[in-house]
Amino acid sequence: MSRSTYVLPSNASQIRIVMKYDFMKYLRNKRLAGMSAIVTLVLLLITALPPLLGNSYTDDANEFVNTYTSFVGVLIIIGATLFAGDAIVSEFQNRTGYLLFPKPVKKWVLLAGKFLASMGAMLLVLVLYYGVALLLGLAITGSFSVLGVESLLLAIMYATAAISVGFLISSVMKGTTGAQILTFALFLFIFNIITGIMTISDVEPWFIITYSSGAISYITQDPYPVTVTATGDGPMVMSSYVPDIDVAIAVMLAYALISLVLAHYFFRRREMSA
């Protein structure tokens, strides 16, 4: 028997292959379809409820899009849960790793391919959501919201960070359900609880990713709002914090980078067990 004569693809080609087949997973297991259904429902509710309640639409395109951007954070959390929460751990729990890991593919290549597949699914969802919101804004107000596009860019950064954190959780957790629940709970409750407690203590939670995600909606307000500190008659000081755009972007990038590096570290060390 002669040695296999096939020439191994480059790492970049293998990333594309892994991405293609992982993306197929989201298409065929109906997660992408389910997520699209949620997006459609949210769009319908936001668009249809105001006139049904007797309210008229605003004639300012940025203000119109602002209503939609308020819900993007939750959509990204659901997306990160569905597209990232079990991306790594499922290979171990479902034993598909016995098939994939003995192949001539580096672990970081697998991680990158899976990450890009998750990002692709999330991007489709965001483009659908923002696309409809921006077009509706254009149709109803007669002008296009450029700030809405900036909001989309921030949403993509937040999605990148959320998916990266999801990958980190997925690379250390033992079960798919636990990984997905933790991803969801971390963004929906834990980060928000920390933000709330810090705000009450009059400390700006600038390093909490969900706090930074507030910029996705704030950016559609013109001018961009600023932190307001109110003092009463007594010693009580209340601040209404608004994340600084540059800091928010830096925090999102830091979460994405650190989470991915740690995810790779844990994934590379992790072993298949019986």
């Binding site: 191994l8 479902n94 034993r95 598909t96 098939l99 003995p102």
Partner: peptide, 16 residues
């Protein structure tokens, strides 16, 4: 590992 595994076929445990 990438080059070592290129000429290898495996069935380990019962893969899913």
């Amino acid at each position: 590992p990438k080059n070592a595994l290129s000429d290898l076929g495996t069935v380990v445990e019962t893969p899913e």
